[in-house]
Amino acid sequence: MEISLHVNGKTYRLNVDPRKRLIDVLRDDLNLTGTKEGCGEGECGACTVILDGQAVNSCLVLACQARDKEILTVEGLARNGELDSLQKSFIEHGAVQCGFCTPGMLMSAKALLIKNPHPTEQEIKEAVAGNLCRCTGYNKIIAAIKKVAEDS
């Protein structure tokens, strides 16, 4: 079926299989491989993108469900070559290790800060509780998000 997707500020006209998941269209059709697949059933959060302001698991959304909606992926976080303050903070805090959870983690954090620019530590933890990370022990990730919230 023919659909329009608005991804990172660009509009794409695509002919997609109605059964195709959003993650597959992002990765295979648009070559936005920053969005990762870790489990395929919404348990790990590696595929998190922001859909009309909401953090969603793109493995649980069909591409056609995202038609005409605004999608933000990790590739769209930087503006005019300038990294988003969350990306900078993750780098500075050593919150990135293997990096596989990082895009999804950043998108969950971004969705939180859009809605709630000054979250408590507990709110930060809950916002990324659906994003598994096996490397960092989460402390540096929480600290990185907290710093951005404090500075804004």
Partner: peptide, 18 residues
């Protein structure tokens, strides 16, 4: 910061499936 932190934070790092 590690040499690869920027690519990973931007989603540019290519892994086995990419």
């Amino acid at each position: 910061p590690r040499h690869d932190a920027w690519a990973k934070a931007k989603g540019d790092q290519l892994y086995s499936d990419d």
